[in-house]
């Protein structure tokens, strides 16, 4: 990895009560690259992303974006960083009370970067980029299928043309074909924007499709990083067990009998 990383995490720790969810996460994401963080349920993937976005405050550790320690930034500087980021939530997190076009242009409207009249055109353009017709803009999120909701959420994430994008389990709950479609859209959007991407998933097919690099998080620590294309044959027993979905290996599921 050359140059200073776009996103740099060092010693990130976070506990909820007695449960230590993050236990010293170290991670670098280079500018313009797509990093996929793998890990089982409850391994700390989503908490890591929420810490970077400022939704959760870590107990310890450093989060740097473009070399700036976000904890030391003023409210305005932190807001400026958020202005340049987009986020696709696992369940879409579309606003039920707003039509699709307002969801897509929410950030632009809130910051008065477009008028309400212009917003419909901007929304139509963003919807077209994710393969949806402009007429979808007039529907409410409750009227959309799961796949369409994911696409609308992706359109919302890219509408303000961010240069850092986070994807939280982008293919969860979708059939394999729709999952591949969403992955393809993600790759296209990230390339078109020239953005840096950080995705979290436990879908191996998705990880290989959207990631340049991959990292594996286990029990709150990054235990491996490497090229995404090598997943399943990394030589790291833990990663290979996870990537190949094997029952036997160093990762033991905590089951109560």
């Amino acid at each position: 990895m050359s140059g200073s990383p776009r996103i740099r995490l060092r010693g990130l720790r976070k506990a909820f009560g007695a449960k230590q969810v993050l236990d010293g996460v170290d991670l670098d994401v280079a500018t313009g690259r797509s990093m996929v963080v793998l890990g089982g349920s409850g391994s700390g993937k989503s908490v890591t992303v929420k810490c970077i976005l400022g939704i959760i405050t870590p107990d310890e550790g450093v989060i740097e974006i473009d070399g700036q320690d976000v904890a030391k930034l003023s409210r305005a500087d932190r807001a400026a960083i958020l202005d340049r980021t987009g986020m696709l939530f696992q369940n879409g997190a579309l606003f039920d009370s707003l039509p699709v076009w307002e969801n897509v242009c929410f950030k632009l409207l809130a910051q008065k970067r477009v008028s309400r009249a212009q917003a419909r055109d901007v929304a139509a353009e963003a919807l077209a980029q994710v393969g949806l017709a402009a007429t979808v803009g007039e529907l409410s999120p409750a009227e959309l299928s799961g796949g369409m909701q994911k696409r609308v959420a992706l359109a919302r994430a890219i509408a303000a043309r961010p240069d850092i994008i986070f994807f939280d389990e982008p293919t969860t709950g979708l059939d394999p074909i729709m999952g591949a479609v969403i992955d393809g859209l993600i790759v296209d959007c990230v390339k078109r924007l020239g953005a840096t991407a950080l995705s979290i998933t436990h879908d191996m097919a998705s990880a290989r499709r959207i990631g340049d690099e991959a990292a594996m998080i286990h029990k709150g620590r990054i235990v491996w990083t490497g090229p995404a294309e090598t997943l399943g044959r990394t030589g790291n027993a833990m990663v290979d067990q996870f990537a190949n979905g094997e029952r036997e290996g160093p990762i033991r599921m905590e089951l109560r009998r």
Partner: peptide
């Protein structure tokens, strides 16, 4: 909105 991440989404949308 809280339990469906919509409030977190507001934060990520600079609101």
């Amino acid at each position: 909105m809280r339990v469906t991440d919509q409030i977190d989404a507001l934060t990520t949308l600079s609101t």
